[in-house]
Design a protein around this nucleic acid. Structure first.
Lengths: 143, 143
DNA sequence: ATTCTTTTTGATATAGCTTATCAATTTCAA
DNA sequence: TTGAAATTGATAAGCTATATCAAAAAGAAT
């Protein structure tokens, strides 16, 4: 049994509900995906090339998008590429992005998360995930 | 004299500092850009086609990127396209998005904004803008 | 296990957005 | 006015992501 049993179950439920099939590739990609906080399709393609040299890039894209629909992943457009975030990673980190040099700093702030919950509750929402990106200039680029 | 004198001045200073030139196209594009909250290069291309049918798309891209370097604009990758945000536009609202029915609720929360500033300062950043999206289920979709 | 229908895959073509190239033009300081 | 340097416009090229489609795999029914 895989160590990602819970997420595998979520995937299987989603597949069943939508009359989709559980394939070797989907299992392989999910396992690899859950080991990271976030990854691009291209990166995963190279990572998995060793385990399965015939795994196609299109399959990776399709599968990562499937994960998004199943609620396991979240797509984020970063620069020219799409980052797929691992939603199960609890320490959901947010990003500080320097618009000068592109530097990215990750951070976590419980107070902000608590306030987010408040806002959601006030509007009748139950949050499953969120995205927070702060854009600005880092110390070096300000000068 | 244009009604965007202040921004025009910022641009001119940036040009001077980097030994770049003030051109008819740059003036035209800045004027059009400042009239909006955000715009894509393609949209601007069509907007300006009437005023100057020979204005090239590449020039628009180059110029909008120049505005980013000058601090007047900010690129944001949305789906497959790049949105160029008008930084001078202050009123920034955030979004609550229902993953069930797609409903979007706008909100504003000063406390969250204040905490964002704190985080940024702690990391040496100066924020120019941000993006906060909360994903979840609205009251109706939860049942 | 075999059959059969439906989905998925892999390879590649295609689409869509952005940048690179380069000759001709424009800017601007001397 | 002149001339060096930057900019422009047109288009080619680059990149990422999706569409296409024949072949393969999954899974239910037999």
């Amino acid at each position: 049994m895989s160590k990602h049993a819970k997420e595998m179950e979520i995937l299987k439920e989603h597949l069943e509900k939508h009359q989709l099939k559980f394939t070797r590739q989907r299992e392989l990609i999910l396992d690899a995906f859950l080991k990271q906080e976030h990854i691009t399709a291209e990166e995963m393609y190279h990572q998995l090339a060793r385990k399965d040299p015939h795994l196609g890039l299109a399959t990776i894209y399709r599968t990562l998008n499937l994960f998004c629909e199943a609620g396991l992943a979240q797509a984020r457009h970063f620069g020219t590429q799409t980052q797929y975030d691992n939603v199960s990673h609890k320490g959901h980190h947010d990003h500080l992005i320097c618009t000068g040099c592109g530097k990215i700093v990750e951070f976590e702030n419980c107070d902000i998360e608590r306030l987010q919950e408040e806002v959601a509750t006030k509007n009748g929402f139950t949050i499953t995930t969120h995205r927070l990106e702060l854009y600005g200039l880092c110390t070096r680029c300000r000068h």
